[in-house]
Nucleic acid binder design. Structure first.
Lengths: 222, 222
DNA sequence: GGACTATCTTAACGATGTTAAGATTCGAGA
DNA sequence: TCTCGAATCTTAACATCGTTAAGATAGTCC
């Protein structure tokens, strides 16, 4: 695949800084990994490379993480926190118009994926989602629970059509998740890095979907 | 990650069959890879393992593929052909009711992903989509072109609401692609391997979406 | 200050992708 | 049919990776 590109017989071996003890290697490894993540991509993350970036020997990480997967899971946890923060920003900015709030959440999800594709895909590495930190999972669940509560109430008030709730949510989640993937993988007309174009697509697509959620007895818009 | 699980100092080294020349190693490697694919997962595919399965030395594949990525791309091409065949079966079975045809295509996509998750994910390996065989791409494009033609015609006849066509297609693609991912990754209530449950979800979700595509002036169903 | 323990390094193992060099076989031209 | 170049395959090696064992270093607690 890529291990020996061209260069051979080279050993940079950067000099060890700071004394024998690092005092906070765990955090240093995480930040090094988060720095490496967008450079090499989530599937090409290397334990040894991360250790080198942190200026430490290749076996040092094992005193802070059980194995590479545990480190990557911690990285993915940080990514999830950032995604969650983006979603929380979106809903607070959106306010109480539940239709607008619903759409802006989806757009924020797509925006995060396009702006930080490596961080986004890191959360989907095989066998990683289950190992994410508990508190991140809890905060995520709490966020979803709150939004779900608001959506149910809005539907009860006639803001959304009386479709089966779970299916509606699943459809919206799938729509947004799928568009994020399509854009990132270059399967759309938009360049994978063109955030503005991606946001335009996100707005249009969520609008198409949202139109189907309007109650039948009302006018199509507003 | 996983390279040295427990077993150490073992070298099975299965005996070489057939003479020095294999006469059709390229195909043998492809079938070996396609057999290994569901067993180990697309990201854990190993060139050496594939060579071993084909009963050949570890360097032999390089006489038929430029590198591992080229082999994997060929495998992904075969996966794409199978997916295309599933979609073609779906549309021929669906007949000319364009609404039904549209939904059944999406369901077939999800069914393929859930029934063959490894094959499905193989097509999304980083940097693989661009290297797929030309003829597979052409056949895929032809399929999409034909379906798009029919959909446009149906929309002109009032079968679908007068939404912006490209956005509607993109939304549908994203919806189906996203649901496939959610189910495969275990992000839904369904077990990732429960094909029947997944199909139920697919039917419901595409129905929710399809309801939004109905023209406003008609009755909600039919 | 001395022992204990956490932390870090060095060195090694097996695995992987890849390449160079040599062995074997095929096939076309004499 | 013989021969010889090219295609095909093997062996051996290299660099890199994840991981572990054993030893060095440095904080901490009595």
């Amino acid at each position: 695949m890529s291990p020996p590109p061209i260069r051979r017989r080279v050993r940079p071996k950067p000099p060890r800084k700071r004394g024998y003890h690092h005092r906070d290697l765990r955090q240093a490894l995480l930040t090094a990994a988060l720095q490496a993540l967008p450079e090499v991509g989530p599937e090409r993350l290397s334990l040894r490379d991360i250790a080198r970036r942190a200026g430490v020997s290749e076996a040092a990480p094992y005193h802070h993480f059980a194995d590479k997967e545990a480190l990557v899971a911690a990285v993915a946890g940080e990514c999830a926190q950032r995604l969650l923060a983006a979603l929380e920003d979106a809903v607070t900015e959106a306010g109480d118009d539940q239709r607008r709030r619903f759409q802006l959440t989806g757009i924020a999800y797509i925006r995060f994926a396009v702006a930080h594709p490596a961080h986004f895909r890191a959360m989907e590495l095989p066998g990683i989602a289950d190992q994410m930190p508990r508190d991140v999972r809890r905060r995520f669940d709490a966020f979803y629970a709150e939004e779900e509560r608001r959506l149910r109430a809005a539907q009860a008030e006639g803001v959304f059509a009386p479709l089966p709730f779970d299916r509606m949510i699943l459809a919206a989640t799938a729509l947004v998740h799928g568009l994020a993937h399509l854009v990132i993988n270059g399967a759309t007309e938009a360049k994978p890095t063109d955030v503005d174009h991606a946001l335009r697509l996100a707005r249009d697509v969520t609008a198409v979907f949202g139109a189907g959620l309007l109650p039948r007895s009302r006018s199509p818009r507003r």
